[in-house]
């Protein structure tokens, strides 16, 4: 009986009541995350050439950082169904804060931004469409603090988002080019110099679906043969036995965690190197991630 009490004692410590649910599986957060997560693996580009991007699971923040560097911010947006069209723009000492809860009214938003001194061009395209590129010259060096990455609207979790633009940092002739696609699409932000062509909606390229899967999974070619921690020699011998092909990828550990796949893969790999992961894209061709040293934990799975 005493045991039951101890368990009872810690129940009230739970931030979310015991047995209760945290997030809403049909809410905007759940939908955005699902889109984000499932977009990543299948949209990994077109094979080895783009592997310069290194990891097929590129984190969102990295994507954002890369995009920022290139003058682009792309974020997934999810809006509440049926919400009235609304946005709010405030100006405070040259800093414009835009809160958007619905994106239907792009022309009005553009007008309002221009009134406030933001040289903005706002377009809305249907889901699956984009404006034909290139529309103009991209500014490569964006002044620090010109605009913020979209963030939550304070006090309104899950409803649209807000971003800040510092109107004082625009150079003459620059335009803030903002494209919003679909209700569940995303927004793309460019900074351009000089004339910008009107948006001509064209179908957005469908990301080539490259399905990677674990070669050691139930349906994998190496089913029943866990590879992590085995030597290259051991794994290659099994691969030959099963009449498969293998590609060896030497991975490098990032100091901050995670790993990278350097593009120069001409290092000779010894039989005593360690395999951490086996995946296959087409049946029978196994991609093995290896390191020279045996590590404390698997750098691919983090376990």
């Amino acid at each position: 009986m005493k045991n039951i009490d101890e368990i009872e004692a810690i129940r009230p410590l739970a931030r979310v009541e015991p047995g209760g649910l945290g997030g809403d599986p049909s809410g905007p957060a759940a939908r955005a995350l699902l889109a984000e997560v499932t977009a990543h693996e299948s949209a990994s580009g077109s094979g080895p050439v783009t592997m310069r991007a290194r990891r097929r699971f590129r984190p969102a923040w990295l994507a954002a950082a890369v995009a920022l560097a290139a003058g682009i911010v792309a974020v997934p947006i999810v809006l509440r169904d049926g919400a009235p069209s609304s946005y709010a723009v405030n100006l405070d000492d040259g800093m414009v804060t835009i809160q958007i809860r619905d994106f239907d009214d792009a022309p009005a938003l553009q007008r309002r931004l221009r009134e406030l001194g933001v040289p903005a061009l706002v377009d809305h395209v249907p889901t699956g469409m984009m404006c034909r590129e290139p529309r103009g010259e991209h500014v490569q060096t964006i002044p620090r603090g010109l605009y913020s990455v979209p963030e939550n609207i304070p006090g309104e979790p899950g409803r649209g988002w807000q971003m800040r633009i510092n109107t004082k940092l625009f150079n003459p002739g620059e335009t803030f080019v903002w494209t919003i696609s679909g209700q569940y699409g995303g927004t793309t932000t460019y900074l351009m110099r000089g004339p910008v062509a009107p948006c001509e909606p064209v179908p957005a390229p469908t990301p080539k679906v490259l399905v990677y899967h674990s070669a050691t999974g139930k349906n994998g070619s190496l089913a029943g043969f866990p590879v992590d921690g085995k030597t290259v020699g051991e794994v290659m011998s099994e691969i030959r036995k099963r009449d498969l092909k293998a590609v060896l990828v030497v991975i490098e550990l990032n100091p901050s965690g995670g790993f990278a796949e350097p593009s120069d893969q001409d290092i000779p790999v010894g039989d005593d190197w360690i395999v951490w992961d086996a995946e296959e894209r087409s049946k029978g061709v196994i991609r093995l991630r290896v390191t020279e040293e045996r590590l404390d934990r698997n750098p691919v799975t983090g376990e």
Partner: peptide, 9 residues
């Protein structure tokens, strides 16, 4: 690593 957080989440 591999963070996929969104503003909504």
């Amino acid at each position: 690593r591999r963070r996929s957080r969104t503003a909504e989440l």
